[in-house]
Design a protein around this nucleic acid. Structure first.
Length: 423
RNA sequence: GUGGGUGUAGCUCAGUUUGGUAGAGCACCUGGUUGUGGCCCAGGACGUCGUGGGUUCAAGUCCCAUCACUCACCCCA
């Protein structure tokens, strides 16, 4: 037996309803906030991610699926969407027509990590990005939209974690202060953090090793080092969020995994999925467009982890099964031609119809109809065809009525609507 | 990449300690009811015991390897 690849998964019909529901909810909401869909390739040049995400991030160092293309250039299965959106914004010169672009995209991402609950090597995200707006109000609006999204999905147990990562003007000062603090605690850091200390000291703030937690406890906080502009921006975001009643927690240790973030960073966390508690995250990346050879345009965006979200939604309400309105129980080969024709005609009318083409006893057919949850069974034997009327049985009330073959589809339509009215 | 747990029927699992004819419940099929579902009763089908090797007269059971799933570390959505 050929099995699927480690860390990948099939999404079966029992789940796809939920996926579609979530995607529909997101699309409807995002569109009301002025977002338009963009669809991008799932492969890009490796360089795009190296330059945007950062050489010294775990994603780039060890998690990307990279292979050699025909002209021996390195090609990567995208590990995230923002880089591609930015690339497209620049390459297609979307800014020329209108610098302000609000875009969303839905699709798979790939990272070679050890699979775990809520973590797959191919995982799905809904991304939303806003280009060309520097105002803190868009930060707040984006978070407001994200919060509304989860509210509409009736997800509970969520929190918004908020932080500011500063900008190139103030972050270096903070990095220095942090580095000297860490250096003073030499010997108390875990091996990973010793490595991070030089390359990316901010990451140490995120470490969960108890001994590191101690060191972090009295470490300097970014909030104390924000420059005037960043501080004002951050305050405005907070008051705008508060004015909309969005509950948020200031989390000075919230660090994004990608190097391109500046200023506002946020994450939506759940308490219901074990260790994989982040179901959405994002932030501002004001320098990235320029960094990738585009114009100087500010930007902000977020990503929602669909796999985890589906798991949450499935924990809640059971999804509605799509059950047949009509099950055609055809008795014997002599009825096949007619019942086949009717099943097509009913399907055309939007009536969910199921038919069994095998030669089974009526008992077996009734059993199957019951099993798949059919609301009604159309019983058709040679006798019915001769008499010009077939039997329609309501599986719940057990009531059976004769339906004339002449104009049958209309009769059934009428019957179903009165049925809905009664129920 | 590191550590723990688990792989036996379509599903949930027992059997592994102490090697000796592969099991239960649910689901499925047939019949009881000659053309009517759910409940009941009777019968039936379904397994290379994850895979490969080894030990043994004999392996689901012991040993080695390997794969997959799973949880945690790590990372992140």
């Amino acid at each position: 037996m050929i099995q699927l690849i480690r860390g990948f998964k099939d999404i079966l019909p029992d789940e796809t309803q939920t996926w579609r529901h979530i995607e529909d909810t997101a699309i409807a909401l995002f569109q009301s906030f002025g977002f338009r869909e963009i669809r991008l390739p799932i492969v890009e040049k490796a360089e795009l991610f190296q330059r945007s995400i950062g050489e010294h991030t775990d994603i780039v160092e060890k998690e990307m699926y990279t292979f050699e293309g025909s002209k021996k250039e390195l090609i990567t299965l995208r590990p995230e969407a923002t880089a591609s959106v930015v690339r497209s914004y620049i390459q297609q010169k979307l800014y020329a027509k209108e610098p302000i672009q609000k875009l969303y995209t839905i699709g798979p991402m790939f990272r070679r990590e050890r699979p775990q609950k809520g973590r797959y090597r191919q995982f799905y995200q809904i991304n939303a990005e806003v280009f060309g707006i520097a105002s803190p109000y868009i930060d707040a609006q984006l978070i407001f939209m994200l919060w509304t999204f989860f509210t509409r999905l009736e997800i509970t147990g969520l929190s918004v974690q908020l932080n500011s990562l500063g900008c190139p003007a103030c972050r270096p000062t903070f990095k220095e202060a942090l580095a000297s603090h860490l250096a003073s605690k030499n010997g108390k850091l875990c091996s990973d953090c010793v490595r991070r200390q030089d390359k990316n000291p901010l990451r140490v703030l995120d470490c969960k090793v108890p001994s590191c937690q101690e060191v972090i406890g009295d470490a300097p906080s970014m909030a104390d080092y924000l420059c005037e502009d960043c501080a004002r921006h951050f305050t405005s975001v907070q008051s705008a969020l508060a004015s909309q009643g969005i509950p948020f927690t200031l989390n000075p240790r919230l660090v994004r995994g990608l190097d391109y973030y500046t200023r506002t960073a946020f994450e939506i966390q759940t308490n219901a999925l074990g260790a994989q508690n982040a179901i959405a995250g994002g932030g501002r990346y004001d320098k990235l467009v320029k960094m990738l050879d585009g114009p100087e345009q500010p930007a902000i965006g977020f990503a929602i982890g669909l796999d985890r979200l589906v798991a949450l939604v499935m924990q809640g309400l059971a999804q509605k099964e799509l059950t047949p309105d009509i099950f055609i129980a055809a008795l014997g080969e002599e009825t096949r031609e007619k019942t086949f024709e009717w099943s097509c005609a009913l399907g055309l009318e939007g009536i969910r119809t199921e038919i069994d083409f095998s030669n089974k006893s009526l008992k077996a057919l009734m059993k199957r109809a019951h099993r798949i949850g059919a609301a009604n069974v159309l019983i058709v034997g040679t006798q019915e065809i001769e008499e010009g009327a077939v039997l329609l049985r309501n599986m719940q009330t057990k009531e059976q009525v004769a339906i004339p073959i002449e104009g049958m589809v209309n009769h059934i339509k009428k019957y179903l609507t009165t049925q809905d009215g009664v129920v």
